[in-house]
Design a protein around this nucleic acid. Structure first.
Length: 376
DNA sequence: TAGTGAATAT
DNA sequence: AATATTCACT
């Protein structure tokens, strides 16, 4: 995994540089970015010998667990209040449930000072790529499977109370929404089950007869998102991928079309407006240039963080300098060409199926135009 | 139907 | 404020 010829530090540096380059195109090379990032993490750890801190910290909101990529992982969604999505039907995959979960109750006051730094923010896009909370995966239980199975669990174990069917289905708008039951005043979820004992996991597969309430929010774990990205990549980007395709590629059992759809929508929004931009507060900071369908940022901004290490002047596609070569797509004819569709099959920068597999040693190119590997 | 955008809920 | 779900339109 590590080039023998190169020292860790150098390797890391190389990787970092690589990452800088890739970072410019989060959309085009999401996986690459992630891979590199992971590699960096790994090296750092080895370098530092002991892993100083790996807190799995984290939000009890969604159980995150990063497992090594690739291997189909075992997805689990915590929340599910009720309402099973449509069960059966469709081409169900087989499902094997295995679970040993340690549960964690919902009782956290989460009143921790957040240290209002700008870090807390999810910074979605970026987090997507840099996510690497607890690299030392150590305990991967992760059963590798052909495809992931969504496990829905009943998070809090609370639920009965009284589900009033607010779902008044009016023909026009059936705007049913769950009243504030969630906030039930008195009891925190303290089921009869001992506090310690793992909460009953209710596999809401085909339970719930209930009318439709509102689906419990589904959390997109890293794994899920990873798969999402992967699928996206295979499909040629967020703009050319459709929810259904994505879902199929993801092969996550239990994941519904709508969920993917929604996620995709969000993803698109995010990628559209702030590809990368890490400026604090001050909006209108990093001017981004839209080239073809790639965002580019001028050196002043991008280059900043880049370690002062070697020389400088690296990567960061500089718009004015014109090194980049936009992907095919719609170059620049200024004409107000609606960005969108031209039906399908327009562009697909990378249509590969095996995006990764390069040995990481390819760096060392401090100069070279790299930046845009795809040339029309 | 499935995709997309927007409203709405949490 | 962000993200997920549902509605509405095509």
């Amino acid at each position: 995994m590590l080039p023998r010829k190169m020292g860790f530090r150098e390797y890391i540096e190389a990787l970092e540089e690589e990452r800088r380059k890739i970072q410019v195109f989060p959309k085009e090379l999401p996986l690459s970015l992630e891979l590199v990032t992971q590699a960096i993490e790994g090296c750092r750890q080895q370098l530092s010998g002991t892993v100083t801190e790996y807190n799995l910290n984290g939000q009890s909101e969604c159980s995150e667990q990063t497992s090594t990529d690739e291997g189909p992982v075992f997805e689990e969604f915590i929340p599910i209040k009720k309402r099973a999505s449509q069960d059966s039907v469709e081409e169900e995959e087989e499902e094997e449930e295995e679970e040993e979960n340690e549960d964690e109750d919902e009782q956290h006051s989460h009143h921790h000072k957040k240290t209002t730094s700008d870090k807390k923010k999810s910074d979605w896009l970026r987090s997507v790529q840099l996510w690497n909370p607890n690299p030392p995966p150590t305990k991967e239980d992760v059963p590798r499977k052909a495809n992931v199975v969504e496990v829905k669990r009943n998070g809090g174990a609370f639920q009965p109370f009284q589900r009033e069917e607010k779902s008044v289905v009016v023909n026009g708008k059936a705007n049913n929404y769950a009243p504030a039951i969630g906030k039930a005043p008195s009891s925190p979820p303290v089921p009869a089950t001992s506090s310690t004992g793992p909460v009953r996991i209710i596999d809401s597969k085909k339970e719930e007869k209930g009318q439709t309430q509102r689906k419990q929010r589904r959390c997109w774990s890293q794994e899920l998102h990873k798969r999402f990205l992967h699928a996206l990549q295979q499909l040629g980007g967020a703009d050319s991928a459709t929810p259904k395709q994505i879902r199929e590629l993801m092969k996550v059992d239990g994941l519904t079309n709508d969920e993917v759809k929604s996620h995709l929508q969000k993803f698109r929004l995010h990628t559209r407006r702030s590809p990368i931009m890490h400026n604090n507060g001050n909006s209108q900071a990093a001017p981004l240039f839209l080239v073809g369908n790639i965002f580019v940022q001028p050196p002043e901004y991008g280059a900043v963080a880049t370690s002062t290490a070697s020389g400088g002047e690296l990567t960061t596609v500089t718009a004015p300098t014109g090194i980049y070569t936009p992907v095919a797509a719609h170059p620049p004819p200024v004409t107000n060409t609606p960005i969108m569709n031209h039906s399908h099959s327009q562009e697909r920068p990378n249509n590969n199926h095996s995006a990764q597999s390069n040995s990481p040693a390819s760096s060392s190119s401090t100069h070279t135009i790299t930046t845009t590997s795809y040339v029309p």
